[in-house]
Design a binder for these strands. Structure first.
Lengths: 337, 337
DNA sequence: CTGAAAGCGCTTACAG
DNA sequence: CTGAAAGCGCTTACAG
């Protein structure tokens, strides 16, 4: 069967401790001994058993990534970034998806715990401030991505939602637009991404001396392409007048774009459109989409690094940190100056 | 610290074997005993230690998914499908990405082995038939997705590449197109997706009595949007005449579409365009893209099921299976009848 | 610089 | 229906 530490030790004529030392790169092993052990490892094709290692060390070198779903390109690109960042620290990533309800989200959290991961990155969706106590039960290091839970005892890495929405909106206003739709609001929400982005939208209008027209604030519950398309269809059917759209993510922007173009609306001549996320596909729509680059790979990098510091204990006594990453407006063809 | 089996046994006044029986749902436990044990579990908030469990049982209940990268929407959607299918069997999924070179691909395979997974799903990209021996060294159940390795000792689940490409091409020919580009070939490749799809393209031309013009067979190395866009730009700059495009996946189709529209080419009036994969975003381009639904979630479902059967031993003595899943041409706006 | 021993927390035969 | 014992394959103090 597969070789164990004992087999290697026997073959090399040393104790298992010495083999372990070689495998784990402990410094004080004589060169001759090391070579003998390595030869035995090669010969026997020995691979350390991870389960035994984990049982003894209490570490799995795996972290969880808990996200809504990879069909949403934002999370697919985030997962890519997280996996690359984790690999740089020697960690693998186990992804848990959840559906758009609280129970599914809680089940994903419990699943992470059950698997004995070293820690989790969690992109909050349905859970709110009242659920903060539940997070403490996860029982392992956790770094939050996104906005939903405002006060919590956990590290938190996110983008500057409000400032970015303000800049996106100001960009449309600067080109003379005055009837700008906010597409993607979640009525009643304050601390989530939708709430924060709406605040930025309102701030930009205020600063430009333009009154906020509630009719222009259009709710979109989920933020997939189909939802943006449906919402825009309803807007156009209602006869609402507008000359700009700040979509709260790129998927709904692209769904809305398709519907507007299909109805013969010229973008950006008649309507300017700006999104959020800088998905790869926004470069290939026609017109290419102006959008906010939210610093997603930076978010992934910082979040993984902070999680690893919690896992290793390097950040043991640190207060929970909130890290805000820089964003950038990426001007393409769907808006004008 | 965290409770162990012994703590629960002590609290419930039974042996650890009985607690284990309760946790693993063994049938022969008296109801009263079971209740006492469950009460103790709740009280102590006991969670089984996965590492210990795996060490003893030799199972981790995790499978690997080895794919090029999740930035490619096809693999993101595949990963989603695989995770859902795996969950239905009680498995979690650990995703390993690799870059477009052999070494990176081999490293991903080795990584899967190192992690002590129960099995892997592997979407072959760079490895070829000569590498088949390397696959045997993986040392765990493995099911292959995609086409690259033709003969191998492993199960293999894939779409009907040749037939689908034939149908896509025939669809363009039926509407009167005669100068149809094959966009995405890999010169010299025979057993990979590109080779098989090219064969289907040629077959359809033959059947329609149209000669294959080598100038219309356009290589595209990687199959991302940017590559499709670059290739189409080169085609247009070259002055090549054509009235149809069979793109070998949706990403290059969408990249090419963007470039054609930008140059003022009307789709489908002047050029008909068909893709492969039925990505969600193909519904939202303008025109919406006609494409091949490759049966991706069925591929995921069947592949996971077969892998699980290998892991549990239910398929122990079975010969390696090749499963071909049904496809479907999805007609949208980028082609005409 | 290397060894002998203990033990991480389970499951798996084996008894009874 | 339940118990006592062994052992999965490592790492971690502890010696020397």
């Amino acid at each position: 069967m597969t070789a164990t530490l004992h087999d290697v030790a026997r073959a090399a004529g040393v104790s298992i401790k010495t083999v372990s030392n070689v495998i784990n790169n402990y410094p004080h092993v004589r060169d001759a001994t090391r070579e003998r052990v390595e030869a035995a490892i090669d010969e026997l094709q020995y691979r350390p058993n991870q389960a035994a290692r984990s049982l003894r060390s209490g570490r799995t070198d795996m972290i969880g990534l808990i996200v809504p779903d990879l069909r949403n390109p934002y999370f697919a690109e985030l997962a890519d970034d997280v996996m690359r960042a984790a690999r740089a620290h020697g960690f693998s990533v186990l992804i848990e998806q959840f559906d758009a309800d609280r129970d599914s989200e809680l089940a994903a959290l419990r699943g992470a715990r059950r698997r004995g991961l070293d820690g989790v990155l969690y992109s909050v969706l349905s859970l709110g401030e009242d659920d903060a106590p539940l997070l403490d039960e996860v029982g392992m290091p956790m770094v939050l991505l996104g906005e939903r839970i405002f006060h919590s005892a956990h590290d938190h890495v996110t983008m500057r939602n409000t400032e970015a929405a303000r800049e996106a909106t100001a960009h449309l206003l600067a080109s003379g637009r005055r009837r700008v739709i906010a597409l993607g609001s979640h009525p009643g929400e304050i601390v989530g991404s939708a709430g924060l982005r709406l605040r930025g939208y309102e701030t930009a209008l205020d600063e430009a001396g333009v009154a906020v027209d509630p009719a222009l604030v259009v709710p979109v519950d989920r933020w997939h392409r189909v939802d943006g398309a449906d919402a825009m269809r309803a807007v156009l059917d209602s006869g609402l007048e507008f000359d700009g759209v700040v979509a709260f993510n790129d998927s709904i922007a692209l769904g809305a774009m398709r519907v507007m173009l299909e109805r013969g609306i010229r973008i950006p001549d008649e309507v300017s459109l700006v999104g959020f996320d800088d998905l790869d596909e926004t470069r290939y729509s026609l017109p290419a989409l102006t959008t906010i680059d939210p610093g997603r790979s930076e978010i992934a990098r910082v979040a993984v690094e902070q999680l690893v510091r919690r896992i290793t204990g390097d950040a043991a006594d640190e207060e929970p940190r909130e890290v805000l990453v820089d964003f950038r407006l990426v001007e393409r063809e769907s808006t004008t100056r």
